[in-house]
Design a protein around this nucleic acid. Structure first.
Length: 832
DNA sequence: AGCACGCCGACT
DNA sequence: GTCGGCGTGCTC
């Protein structure tokens, strides 16, 4: 598409600068945020070949960089754009839809356009681009700018004349970096050298052989190879297969050696190349685990009616995980039957692997899992397969949203509320929201599966932007009256959740970590032969080590954290940067030998239980233990060899093994005391998910929550198991403060080793924002801060932040403002 | 990454 | 008045 320039409509005005053709290019310039592009002129020799999505070589400042062509235009915002130097790869890497998706990501999250495009490519492209130089034929050279080469440049010319084309890296190795980075571009500019860029894809996958001969030719060659039986056999095997044959299989089948194959390659009868092969689909179980029972049938009716609507739509599928999966599978089946592709996202790779296993067992068709392609070569292979349309269903964690699927007919985001969908670094994309946008651009439906919707997701249900599908088969859900528009007046399953007010309850155990009601209920369950799972949100033994004499507190030298005592490591550990020091015996300040351990973690809770409960088999899981150890503990608990299990959120890694009759929350809600508006949601999700995983639909199971804030709406809602109660209270608070989903929030974080610089730079940005906002008063933006972050120091760097929230249109321009040192985080998932 | 530009202190 | 060190912003 070439749009007419403004000149086309106004021929009376003589165009001073050359009108088009120009291209808009995404260049990987550091410090450029947002969807900003740069314009380049298209030289006549490249004009017929140049297409959007191509990889091109451009000069940017004094640097040579690769860029991706976003669009062709007849207009340019600058007088004389530099020319495109070369097309690195003719086949466009990305189609228009992907390019525009990248532009949207960059604008929405204040990420750099180049990094968003990089994400959509199969591998780190920059690493595989080489720039080559070769001397130009002096006769054919029109000297644009005659130069007198200096000594280094003369050596470069001599070297290239002697050796032919060389990559910059090779020249730099031979003649030094200065000649390579300064001399070579000068010589190219003067027309003495020709320069081009090549992309060498990482090789990977499986070495596979294919025939270069037609069937008739093959027959002839086989006849000619009378004295080479092994070669004949190789050709026969290859001729029998429609697709390239992995070399290992080929040699085995033909009972031949490498030398025979090499001979065929030399004769140009056979080609060997690395090809990524999708793992063979497992044998499909004929009966899909469909929603067969009565309630399941009702679920499918609701899902199907959503899928049958034309075009794009978002639905929230609310039900427990075990019931969501069959609904996913049936939805995918329907999508495949329509000849379209499905994308399935899960918050973690482990969950994605589980879903992949279930889906590929139930469906025939190519169901791929991104976790199967780990090496760069295999990632390229999977990317190519996706682009070629060879994949029917792609399952993966958040990175799978970037896969180049072109016939997308359905997107599924499982456990949409999970914070793992937010990228922790880089563009900090919220992948759940990106997936919704992707589906919109493909005009296809998207299902957000969850048992506890994110607040912004459920707000979209209430405002009727998203459709809610309540799973009728989920009995717990029905019991807890999860009904939109109805009240929650009746408590859920009676008596199953108790709150214990830790400010007044009688306590026991070292440091008073367990209350009497908690302990009594747990002991009753154990006496009746049940098992118990205890949740503690900190690993280690004590969150603070304090000197009883002088009050000295052990803190991390690089962060502001108190060090946590880990008895099993006999150390104090910083949970931010993992700094460790041997556990102290005496105070380093006053040399007193009386140190007090304050607070508790998995270790101290386990120790206390062992002292209080004789004869019970108690163990713990947390991230201090190896994966194998955790698996072994999970197995013991499943077999009943352990009957009390203490753990952190690592319990979710062994989710399948932690069903029990008692769930005790020793400590979970300390986050509620922090000034972080996302904390209540996090705590509620944690409590609800734990209850689902441990007690499941067991309405007689007991849950006891110890808390210092029994009146907090999170605890009140958790007690009656009502999501709606939680949501209503939470949304009220968000509205009162004008927080998301009532505004778009952006967080700007600055880190600097120098405390004064951190402060002044933060103040400077706030000033700059005020300047930007002053231009447009009453735009509804509120700036909070600047202030030191809650974690004011981390890894030796001082951290300051600034929050801006307001209408999306007013926030967007702010995202491009900050420069060096600032991190931009749109829709932050915490304010730590 | 590498260069221009502007601010500020030090020196002529 | 001028030089230069350094921090900051820009590169189509």
């Amino acid at each position: 598409m070439s749009e007419p320039g403004p000149g086309a409509h106004a021929p009376a005005v003589p165009a001073k600068r050359q009108a088009g053709p120009f291209v808009e290019v995404a260049v990987g310039a550091t410090g450029v945020r947002g969807p900003r592009t740069f314009h380049y002129a298209v030289p006549a020799r490249l004009e017929p070949r140049l297409l959007p999505g191509q990889l091109v070589l451009v000069e940017f400042g004094k640097r040579l960089l690769h860029g991706v062509v976003m669009d062709r235009t007849g207009d340019s915002p600058v007088e004389t754009p530099k020319p495109i130097l070369d097309i690195i790869w003719d086949t466009p890497f990305l189609d228009r839809r992907s390019l525009e998706f990248a532009r949207w990501l960059a604008g929405r999250f204040g990420a750099s356009l180049a990094s968003c495009i990089e994400g959509l490519l199969p591998t780190n492209i920059a690493r595989h681009i080489n720039i080559y130089y070769v001397p130009r034929d002096p006769a054919a050279t029109e000297e644009t700018t005659p130069i007198e080469p200096n000594a280094g440049e003369r050596r470069a010319l001599a070297l290239l004349r002697a050796r032919g084309p060389m990559a910059v890296a090779e020249i730099a190795a031979a003649l030094g970096k200065t000649v390579a980075t300064r001399g070579l571009p000068r010589l190219a500019e003067a027309g003495r050298l020709r320069r081009w860029a090549e992309l060498q894809f990482p090789t990977g996958g499986t070495a596979s052989a294919s025939l270069l001969l037609s069937i008739e030719e093959t027959d002839r060659v086989i006849a000619e190879l009378a004295r080479a039986p092994k070669q004949r056999e190789l050709l026969r095997v290859l001729a029998a297969s429609a697709r390239p044959v992995p070399v290992a299989d080929l040699l085995r089948e033909a009972n031949a050696g490498h030398s025979s194959l090499t001979a065929l390659r030399k004769a140009r009868h056979v080609r060997v190349e690395n090809i990524y092969r999708l793992p063979p689909p497992p044998p499909a179980t004929p009966a899909s685990p469909a929603l067969r029972d009565e309630a399941g049938g009702a679920d499918w009716t609701a899902v199907e009616s959503f899928l049958d609507r034309d075009g794009h739509g978002v639905s929230v599928l609310l039900g427990d995980p075990a019931r969501r999966a069959p609904a996913y599978i049936q939805s995918i089946e329907k999508t495949l039957a329509a000849g379209l592709q499905a994308l399935v996202l899960a918050p973690t790779e482990r969950e994605a692997a589980d879903l992949h296993e279930r889906i590929s067992a139930a469906l025939s068709g190519q169901v791929a899992f991104t976790g199967h392609a780990r090496t760069p070569g295999n990632r390229v292979g999977l990317w190519r397969a996706a682009r070629a349309g060879e994949i029917d269903v792609l399952v993966g964690p958040r990175s799978a949203v970037y896969a180049p699927l072109s016939r997308l007919g359905l997107v599924i985001v499982d456990r949409e509320e999970d914070r793992a969908y937010k990228e922790p670094r880089g563009g900090r994309i919220q992948v759940r929201d990106a997936a919704v946008e992707l589906a919109r651009r493909h005009l296809c439906p998207i299902i957000l599966g969850t048992a506890t919707p994110a607040v912004e997701t459920f707000y979209n249900v209430e405002t009727e932007r998203y459709r809610l599908i309540l799973m009728q088969s989920d009995h717990l859900l029905r019991k807890t009256r999860m009904k939109v528009g109805r009240g929650w007046g009746t408590p859920g399953p009676a008596g199953t959740v108790d709150l214990v007010d830790m400010r007044t309850a009688p306590v026991m155990g070292h440091g008073g970590m367990l209350s009497e009601p908690f302990f009594t209920t747990m002991k009753e369950t154990l006496a009746a032969g049940g098992q118990a799972v205890l949740f503690v949100n900190r690993r280690g033994a004590a969150s603070m080590t304090i000197c009883r004499e002088c009050g000295y507190v052990f803190t991390c030298p690089d962060c502001d954290n108190n060090l946590v005592q880990h008895r099993s490591l006999d150390s104090l550990v910083c949970h931010s940067c993992n700094h460790r020091r041997p556990a102290p015996r005496r105070c380093p300040d006053c040399d007193a030998g009386r140190l007090r351990l304050w607070g508790h973690g998995t270790e101290s809770v386990t120790d206390a239980l062992r002292a209080l409960l004789s004869g019970q088999r108690i163990d713990r899981v947390d991230s201090n233990l190896s994966v194998e150890h955790v698996e072994a503990v999970a197995d013991s608990f499943r077999r009943g060899a352990i009957n009390v299990l203490v753990g952190t959120s690592l319990l979710f890694r062994i989710e399948a093994a932690i069903q029990a009759r008692f769930l005790g929350i020793v400590q979970a809600d300390i986050g509620l005391a922090f000034p972080d508006f996302t904390a209540p949601e996090r705590v509620f999700q944690l409590l609800t998910r734990l209850r689902g995983a441990v007690l499941g639909g067991d309405l007689d199971g007991k849950m006891v929550i110890q808390t210092l804030m029994p009146d907090h709406h999170v605890n009140q809602a958790a007690q009656i198991g009502s999501y709606l109660k939680f949501f209503r209270s939470e949304i009220e608070i968000r509205q009162a403060h004008g927080f998301p989903p009532f505004s778009r929030m952006a967080r700007f974080i600055l880190t600097n080793r120098d405390p004064d610089k951190a402060r002044t730079e933060a103040l400077r940005l706030a000033e700059q924002f005020n300047g930007v906002l002053a231009a447009e008063p009453d735009n509804g933006v509120e700036i909070l801060g600047p202030a030191p972050c809650f974690r004011a120091r981390e890894r030796g760097a001082h951290r300051w932040h600034l929050l801006a929230h307001g209408p999306e249109a007013a926030i967007a321009p702010l995202l491009q403002v900050p420069h060096r040192g600032w991190t931009v985080d749109v829709d932050p998932i915490d304010l730590v």
